[in-house]
Write a protein that binds this DNA or RNA. Structure first.
Length: 506
RNA sequence: GCUCUAUUAGCAUAGUGGUUUAGUGCAUCCGACUUUCUAUCGGAAGACAAGGGUUCGAUUCCCUUAUAGAGUACCA
């Protein structure tokens, strides 16, 4: 009985896709897949002034990188295409005309300048200018409602610029439904007569959106909260056309980490985290960082995005895409805005890092560090296995593991103070001997030899282990000392111990 | 201004008209890992915006206030 679920993600190609847009796309995707439906990408490029070349490709690449590809869209499975509104231009006029013919819309000839003047005028008087029943017949507006039929025709045939406005009803209370927010009532008297068709021959978002959603057989419109105020108009438009409206769900806004205002493009650079999925080079040359380039795994991005406004109601926080599809539910989406937490996104990334194959991480590590070009990949893989648990990004690896590849060139001052005592040189020399005497050079043998020596001579672990670590690493950091010795080998271990002994100056 | 929306600890959130001493995660602090640590493990501290109702009883329902956000374009 129920139709197949079809949802759409309808971004405007005005620049890189904001992370909030990705979240909207993700929720659409999850909802569609959960119900075995289709996920449609439609490009809303009705504003020719704001068009940015390359933005559409960026959107497609972003969705693909996140692993949430669309089923239908530009150049892909075009069943009900085209999927760019600029290519559907010819479709919209007839619908605007239809509304005019049945009295639901009208021509307006006011210029932008005239309207601005009205708005300013009202502002001075402390009132709000609304282009609706309240003002449309008072004589100061020029439209087909106040003009005679002849005058209107004359203006049209004279080629005067006009727009088509929706005639919003008077004194009605609209009852709207939103899956997330429940019932919403609106007094139609506060609605203005929105422009449906612009003087440049293109429809506005409002008209195009309704016509396309209808033609593309969209069953659920899942979009950002900023559209909530337009919901009444959209419902009215469906009614005016005599079409069944889809169901609506308005997603909560994504707020800045400071909590004030919605997350904007500039917040990222200011606070040191990306707001875009992929790096973006603007036509003017400025570069915005992306999650991908910053070293985030797509799984982590999807996971934290899913939790921006939604939660499963259980204590599970780690969700694969498949899990999300299984558990996602619009009813469980929050109404309140979701504050973006950069630390939590790192936490997710750390988690997904642990699940990556050491070999894959090692390959990436090698590519990003020239110094590793000639190092055996198997060795790098072993190193990665030892240090990845304390890394969030692959870019952390070098900092955490350089001593596996190169000997320390100097010793951290604070660490030296802490580790080096009067008898340190003697102790280290003895340790070097022990290392040298360990023929079968394994972690286990090193441990039993050195630890055994410490306990049998009653020296104290700190006095031995700390300077030993300092010798090997150059600081009091890194994984288990015995692992390090084993990895760099007997000769290198002894070399480094002797280097420290020498530097102490005994 | 007007319209709409929200408000649980530093932050994100769970949850409910009465055994809830309000659960979880991030961050913080403290311990442990026979001694690195920004990792891991264990523990601690920390919240129902305010005021009115409704009710035997409200964090949970209603109203008001405060605060915050969104929209208010020939942008989407």
């Amino acid at each position: 009985m129920s139709k197949k679920v079809r949802v759409r993600f309808a971004p405007s190609p005005t620049g890189p896709l904001h992370i909030g847009g990705v979240r909207t796309a993700l929720f659409n995707y999850l909802f569609a897949k959960k119900h075995g439906g289709d996920f449609v990408l439609r490009i809303e490029d009705t504003d020719q002034n704001r068009y940015v070349a390359g933005a559409e490709d960026y959107i497609v690449e972003s969705l693909n990188w996140c692993g949430i590809p669309f089923d239908e869209g530009p150049e892909k499975n075009e069943k009900l295409g085209p999927y760019r509104q600029s290519e559907r231009k010819h479709l919209y006029k007839q619908y605007a005309d239809q509304l005019i013919a049945n009295g639901k819309a009208y021509y307006a000839f006011d210029t932008s300048e005239q309207l601005d003047a009205h708005r300013k005028d009202h502002e001075i008087k402390g009132k709000t200018f609304i282009y609706n029943w309240h003002n449309r017949k008072k004589g100061r507006l020029v439209n087909s409602l106040v003009l005679s039929e002849e005058e209107t025709k004359a203006k049209l045939s004279a080629g005067e610029h006009y727009v088509v406005r929706f005639k919003s009803p008077q004194d009605e209370t609209l009852h709207l439904k939103d899956i997330i927010r429940g019932d919403i009532s609106i007094d139609t008297n506060v609605l203005d007569d929105k422009i449906l068709f612009k003087s440049d021959g293109m429809p506005t978002y409002h008209l195009a959106n309704i016509v396309d959603d209808h033609l593309m057989e969209i069953t659920h419109v899942i979009r950002g909260e900023e559209w909530l105020p337009s919901l009444a108009l959209h419902q009215l438009l469906y009614d005016a056309f005599g079409w069944d409206a889809p169901e609506f769900a308005h997603l909560p806004l994504i707020l800045k980490p400071t909590g004030k205002g919605k997350l904007s493009k500039r917040d990222g650079d200011k606070m040191g985290f990306p707001v875009f999925p992929l790096e973006y080079k603007a036509p003017d040359g400025t570069i915005s960082r992306g999650y991908k380039e910053d070293g985030y795994f797509p799984e982590a991005v999807v996971n934290f995005l899913a939790f921006l406004g939604w939660n499963p109601g259980t204590e599970q926080e780690i969700f694969s895409l498949e899990d999300l599809i299984k558990h996602f539910d619009l009813e469980r989406v929050n109404k309140a805005g979701a504050r973006f937490d950069p630390d939590k996104t790192k936490w997710f990334n750390h988690h997904y890092m642990q699940q990556q194959l050491d070999l894959d991480l090692a390959k990436e590590f090698q590519v990003k560090n020239i110094l590793l070009a000639d190092v055996d990949i198997n060795y790098i893989t072993l190193v990665v296995g030892l240090i990845k648990e304390r890394a969030t990004f692959v870019s952390d690896f070098w900092e955490l593991s350089h001593f596996f590849f190169v000997a320390p060139i100097d010793y951290d001052e604070k660490a030296s103070k802490k580790a080096i005592k009067e008898d340190t040189a003697d102790i280290l020399s003895k340790v070097a001997e022990l290392v040298n005497a360990t023929d079968d050079f394994t972690v286990e043998n090193l441990q039993t030899n050195i630890k055994g020596w410490i306990t049998s001579n009653d020296i104290g672990f700190g006095k031995v282990m700390m300077p030993l670590r300092l010798a090997l690493v150059g600081a009091l950091q890194g994984p288990d000392v015995f692992d390090i010795m084993f990895m760099i080998g007997k000769r290198e271990t002894i070399k480094r111990i002797e280097a420290l002994v020498k530097s102490i100056g005994h």
